Every structure is written in structure tokens, then in C-alpha cells.
Simulated assay, not measured.
Amino acid sequence: MDKRASRAKLLYSVTMSADGFITGPDGDMQWMRPYLGPNPEVTELIPRIGSILVGRRSHDGDDPHKGEPGEGEAFGGGWDGPLFVVTHRLPSTPEPGVTYVDQLPEAIAMAKAAAGDKYVNVIGADIARQCIAAGELDEVLLIIAPVFLGAGTRVFDEPGGRTVRLQPRSTTAGTNLWFDVLR
């Protein structure tokens, strides 16, 4: 697929602790429960998402909505649409509404085609890092929860280090930071 044919943009939207972690130790997402309250910017964003691109670890991992309505669903059940899981471990039994893809470029192309002129929402630190490395990530929305976790999965972690420049954009809520990725 010609990259210019799709108007979809890849957006890494993520809730993180004030010290930069998106999960606690061992992938724990329960830390997030007290901070899942209403967020007008996220409410406005959800209908602008056309597809989701997620890594297998994030897709199969802990759910901050565990035991609640919306468990196992994107945005706690607030979003429904095509979901593309990037994995080298393709499942033997397909999951309804989920497309498993073993190559990132193919997954990005499929997610963009499905999104049309809406966002492809990227979920998972490693998939976001891979999208940055491929020059495909367009925007970042960081939702900062007022807590320090001290350990877990970092919002961005590049072995050996790497600088990725971001251009700040205006935001509507004090805990949300929205950036364009500069190339």
C-alpha cells in the first residue's frame, strides 16, 4: 500500500506515572484504577480512532478494568473497531475482531487502511518504539497520572539510548501532554 494514499496518522496515546512508567512491576496495570476518571480530551479522541495497533504483550496483559464492565475491551469498552496485534506468536485459534500480524510494516499498512482518515492508536511501549524506529509514529498523547511507581515498563525505552524530538501542542487538560514527532 502506498503510504501517501492513507491519511491515517499513528498516535501513541498512553497513561503513565509521573516518573514515566506505563505498567508497574511485572506488567501490573492495577495501579491505574484510581486515575481512570473522566478525561475530556480522551473522550473527544475516542471517536477519532479508526483502528488500534497493539503488541501481543499489551494485548494479552493485565487490564486496569479487570472485574469491571469493559474488561478486555479497548478504552474500557468505550471504543470498538478493528484491532491489529503485532506478534511472532500467532494464535492457533483466532479471536473475533482481532487480526494477528507477524510483520510490523504489514500491520501498520493494514491498520492505516482500516483507520481511513482517523487515527491508528498505538498501544504498548515496544510497538511504539518500533514505530518510531520505522519513522511511522506521528503523534504522542501522554496522560500523566499523579503517582510515582518507581519500576515497571517505561513509556519509551531504547537500549543504548536515543533522542526522539517532540513538538508540544496545546492541550485541554492539565495532565495531558500532546506532541508531534519531529523527523
Results as ranks from 00 to 15, higher is better:
P34G: 09
L36H: 08
G37V: 10
P38S: 15
P40D: 12
T43C: 00
T43G: 06
E44D: 15
I46C: 09
I46R: 12
I46E: 06
P47K: 07
R48E: 14
R48W: 05
I49E: 02
G50I: 05
S51F: 04
L53T: 04
V54C: 12
R56S: 14
S58F: 03
H59N: 09
D60V: 04
D60I: 00
G61S: 14
H65M: 15
G67Q: 09
G67D: 10
E68H: 11
E68D: 05
P69D: 13
G78Y: 00
W79D: 12
G81N: 01
L83W: 03
H88T: 14
R89F: 00
P91N: 07
S92G: 09
T93S: 11
T93C: 01
G97K: 01
G97E: 02
T99S: 12
T99P: 00
D102G: 04
L104G: 10
P105E: 09
P105Y: 03
P105K: 06
A107D: 08
A107W: 09
A109N: 11
M110Y: 08
A114E: 02
A115E: 03
G116R: 07
K118L: 14
V122Q: 01
G124Y: 06
A125W: 02
D126E: 15
A128V: 08
A128N: 05
A128T: 07
Q130I: 04
I132T: 10
A134E: 12
D138E: 06
D138S: 13
D138V: 00
E139D: 13
V140N: 02
L141A: 10
L142T: 03
L142C: 12
G150W: 13
G150P: 05
G150N: 11
A151M: 03
T153C: 05
R154E: 12
V155M: 14
